[in-house]
Design a protein around this nucleic acid. Sequence first.
DNA 1: TTCAGATGCGCAAACGTTTGCGTTACTTAT
DNA 2: ATAAGTAACGCAAACGTTTGCGCATCTGAA
Lengths: 334, 334
Amino acid sequence: MKVKIIDLAKSLGTSTSTVSRALNDAPGVSEELRAKIVKAARDMGYMPDQGARNLVKRTTGNIGLYVPRGLFFVMSNPFFAQVLLGISDVIDDMGYNYILSTSPLQHRKMFRTNLVDGIIMFALRLGDPYIRELEEGGFPSVIVGSYNPSVDMPAVRPDDYQGMYAAVNHLAEMGHKKIALLNGPLSSFKSVACLDAYRRSLMEHELDDIYEKAVSGEFVAEWGLEGANALFNEKDRPSAIACANDLIAMGVYRAAHERGLKIPDDISVVGFGDFPSAVYLSPSLTTVHTPMREMGYEAAKVLVEKMKGTSSVEHKALFQTSLVVRESVRRYEE
Amino acid sequence: MKVKIIDLAKSLGTSTSTVSRALNDAPGVSEELRAKIVKAARDMGYMPDQGARNLVKRTTGNIGLYVPRGLFFVMSNPFFAQVLLGISDVIDDMGYNYILSTSPLQHRKMFRTNLVDGIIMFALRLGDPYIRELEEGGFPSVIVGSYNPSVDMPAVRPDDYQGMYAAVNHLAEMGHKKIALLNGPLSSFKSVACLDAYRRSLMEHELDDIYEKAVSGEFVAEWGLEGANALFNEKDRPSAIACANDLIAMGVYRAAHERGLKIPDDISVVGFGDFPSAVYLSPSLTTVHTPMREMGYEAAKVLVEKMKGTSSVEHKALFQTSLVVRESVRRYEE
DNA sequence: TTCAGATGCGCAAACGTTTGCGTTACTTAT
DNA sequence: ATAAGTAACGCAAACGTTTGCGCATCTGAA
């Protein structure tokens, strides 16, 4: 059977209170006795039951990661890998555990049943439920990624608008006149930022009369393949494609290859995100870098402050994005 | 403040026991009263505190995912995405939460402090600690992926040996005489299976006297790039490279591209895993398909049986792998 | 009409911790 | 020498549930 605090107490001829205090570095126990208790705990392999501990301390020692898009979406999107990396940079040696929730139900349960001390929310979209409830409850939580800026909650997000603006500007400055946008779903705030930036850049370069084509899909390679195929099938083909996401760009790569189109000779493409794989594509992908790890780091820091209850100011951080040019765009001449 | 069971009881003029029974569909409460209680619980937004519940029921409603390789390793390896997909197919509507642990410390805490009801372990390698402890304790747990077969614990794994055997055979049958292996670390059981299969195939085709080169690295694209570069720098170059992992293959693609080598014209490559991205590479990757989702499904099923305590038989499942040929290998002629 | 068995419900103990408070023994200042 | 203070420890309550048991009340069969 598992060894409990009372077993320890009995074997040492002391009380549970003293054992508890000793193990928690609380005052009120002599150094001599504390040492004995610690040793005995080690020897007998004692570890405090979490349920009991949570019950009395009103704190759980784990933080929730909410991604209302399903487990697969999380795991197959390098964005999370990177952001989580930053999060774990600050959280890991604080001894927290991560608990994952991908459905509104799980999410609700998390913060309503004292399952976690704080929540980091990803990939929120228009109409995702239970955000408001969280907001009102004052539960420690942070949003990471583009989301409704009017929502009254700490958030750290990338400047998606500037990123896409720089990307399309680059394409235009390289001489491209017919630039298409393979976008994400418009329920995503990132997608609307991308769309706005795309339009503005086109207008500023007086290209919108020549060609304007923005189509919405999902943030996955499958959509890039499908969307690019559709684009290629039209009589009036673009010479460059901007993608809202590196995964979409991968799909474009595939579509081009299947049709014998060379990148960047026949078609230029720029991605978004600068996922680790961007540099492994052939040709390597020109894309806009999003400081995902740094964002994760910041989000985690904000969250721990929230959990400590120290900072109750609404923290909003905006991270710069920047175009990194590699091999997938060429200068376009008539 | 959060509404507790006693608030519900008071507001209905009944007792906590009855409320508890009503909400848990336990017998001993009239349908009429049960309906009233359920309604009131709904209205007041009652949800049972997990800590208290766990404490008395000795069960937590969440399952642990242990990957002793660090958070980044998990999140950036499509293997997990796929396996988790299978797991969630069976687990998700059972209402469990996932709790992630990537360090031995977290892992130990998980099953020693009643934090989870069961554990699924990934990517185990030689020398990973705390496995034995788990084994002895009889804690419900499953291993997924190649691991020491002599360990006395339920496990579901792919037939990595046959997979690599088929891959190298294919290369040999396509006329390649100089075949290299870019392997994973030898602390991984998968790597040693790959190495054995590679050697056997070479011997059977009487190729081992001509050329034999197996080098160990990590299961990441960086290693594929580095390893391939090293291979290309030698005077006696291979005409084909077998990789222990699709990510490694991506690295090889990159190395080839940087050097102006065409795949498969100048160099053939076969991967392992059949990650979703394999089909998006240009050219698409010939690789060994591993039924990851199916494995996850099976692992989860075994785990829930273990947790129910029904099946105490040691369950070992071996999943077939199969070569899927695409575009990255060509017939080799002198 | 009576009695055995259901049925519906409440009391209180239990789960394994933490912690406020009281008690004792010991120190230090007066 | 006495008072006041402090340090070390134990008692017992509390955290919010679930559940064994006992007590009524009600049912239907003898």
